[in-house]
Design a protein around this nucleic acid. Structure first.
Length: 452
RNA sequence: GGCGUCGUGGCCGAGUGGCUUAGGCAGGGGCCUGCAAAGCCCCCCACGUGAGUUCGAUUCUCACCGACGCCUCCA
């Protein structure tokens, strides 16, 4: 059974879905005001791996991930650039999906937009006011988390200890520094929606409450996102849901940061690398492998060196895939022992580093079996490799890409020369092909050529 | 100030009270090959500092040093 670290519990606990055989997960998506960076890529990959693993395990997965398409940052950028806020949101969203597609992240089963849920948010806010846990101030409607007895659960701190060193300004329009805005009254030039308290727009923390409960229902299984969302974002979502008498997420999962030179990568710090830029300069699969090689709760350093390293490791896997493909192994059931080892690793809080280590170990074993002609062993273990790759979303390149006929002819000419032991001629052909950017390898079936 | 994470070999990155102490990349040697490439085998290089617990600690405890994160927008 899958065990996951639960942020609320502070430890690894069994992951038991609300409904056997079906998992409902909500992963906080992006605010679309700029290009996605490596950090967005990591959380997307982490939860994509979890989703794929659950699917691979035979479960159905309802995967909801939102698009925050109305927010201060979008409005600010619109004002700065003299554009319409919705234009920015739309363009950035399309870039987002392009990046997700590029790194092989499955599309959510549902991708709700904040602007489509404003009415429901207003309903929730009205309910919270009725329950006397929210109040109308001069610039908006605020929520008082202090009414939630276990507020601070996800921050793993009490309200008191958080206030002890509070760097939060006690603004006039708030009763308490920890209060947060549910609704912000409209200012000139801003988009707005109607509400019983006046024209305005929703605060950030409300949308996820409404959308997750609407699409997944009370007590949905898992709520996830980056570590920085645990507090205050998720804490505040949870507080609203609890205050409204709803049952919120059963399990909380947060991934560690992408770092650059030991520092968190973030748009706000200005040290981010655009995800699409990475994908252009590196095989996108290398990023997935890099993410898989470190545990999801640990930080991962993403630099030119680390992506190059992952790309080199990936070449070994691709080379393996080509060899297995050309070996034309008999179909075989995956070796049950090896498969169980993989499941054990993944069930242990998604121990993908162990799974990757096992993957490379299997590659060596299959290569050895192939060297010694033990095709039965090779086939059974190669089948496990295929299973692991499928479960974590790693697609190996077994070649088969179109090689120009002219190049294939020269490869055949090289084989002819070699058969005649005319090595001067065969090496000349090889050197020429290499100079033109091809990788030339001898195999049992003759010269193999592929792009470098 | 409060809360928390981390410090592993040339680099990246797991893990563990003692057992052959992952894996990848790089480096060295060997096998294979006409020569290469790919592959296989072997080797090299460790656990921030100090003290404590223990028969024994890289792994547990404490202190210290250092790095980082959250407490404010942030994946």
């Amino acid at each position: 059974m899958l065990h996951l670290f639960d942020t609320a519990a502070g430890k690894v606990i069994p992951f038991e879905p609300r409904q056997p055989g079906r998992v409902s997960m909500y992963v906080c998506g992006p605010t679309v005001y700029g290009p996605p960076h490596l950090g967005h890529g990591r959380f997307s990959l982490v939860f994509d791996v979890l989703r794929r693993y659950l699917l691979w395990s035979g479960l159905e997965v309802d995967y909801v991930s939102n698009i925050t398409d109305i927010d201060d940052k979008i409005i600010n950028r619109a004002n700065t650039e003299g554009r319409d806020w919705s234009d920015i949101a739309e363009k950035c969203e399309s870039v987002w999906w392009r990046a997700m597609d590029a790194i092989g992240v499955m599309r959510p089963t549902s991708d709700p937009h904040a602007t489509d849920y404003v009415e429901q948010m207003v309903e929730l806010i009205a309910d919270l006011i009725t329950r006397d846990v929210a109040y109308v101030s001069d610039d908006g409607v605020y929520f008082s988390p202090s009414v939630v007895s276990d507020y601070g659960l996800l921050a793993r701190q009490t309200i008191e200890s958080m206030q002890a060193g509070a760097r939060v300004e006690v603004a006039d329009h708030k009763h308490s520094p920890i209060d947060f805005a549910l609704w912000k009254f409209v200012k000139p030039g801003e988009p707005s929606w109607p509400s019983p308290w006046g024209e305005g727009r929703p605060g950030w923390h409300t949308e996820c409450v409404v959308m997750s409960l609407d699409l997944l229902g009370d007590g949905f299984d898992l709520h996830g996102g980056g570590q920085d969302l645990a507090f205050p974002h998720h804490e505040n979502e949870r507080a609203q849901a609890v205050a409204a008498g709803r049952t919120f997420a059963r399990h909380w999962m947060h991934n560690g940061f992408v770092e650059v030179g030991g520092e968190k990568m973030a748009k706000s710090l200005g040290n981010f690398t655009n995800l699409l830029d990475l994908v252009e300069s590196t095989d996108p699969r290398a990023y997935r492998l890099l993410v898989l090689r470190s545990h999801y709760r640990s930080p991962v350093e993403v630099t030119r060196a680390s992506t190059d390293d992952a790309a080199a490791a990936l070449r070994r896997l691709d080379s393996f895939a080509r060899r297995v493909a050309s070996a034309q192994l008999p179909s075989a059931m995956p070796d049950p022992t090896a498969l169980a080892e993989f499941v054990r690793a993944m069930d242990s809080d998604l121990d993908t580093p162990a799974a990757v280590a096992q993957l490379f170990g299997l590659v060596t074993e299959v290569n050895s079996a192939l060297d010694s002609g033990d095709t039965a062993t090779a086939a059974a273990l190669a089948a496990v490799v295929a299973e692991i790759c499928a479960a974590v979303g790693l697609v190996l390149d077994a070649g088969g890409s179109e090689i120009p006929a002219e190049v294939l002819e020269r490869a055949a000419a090289r084989d002819t020369a070699r058969a005649a032991r005319d090595f001067a001629a065969s090496d000349a052909i090889r050197d020429a092909l290499i100079a033109e950017g091809w990788i030339v390898e001898d195999t049992a079936t003759g010269t193999q050529v592929r792009p470098a």
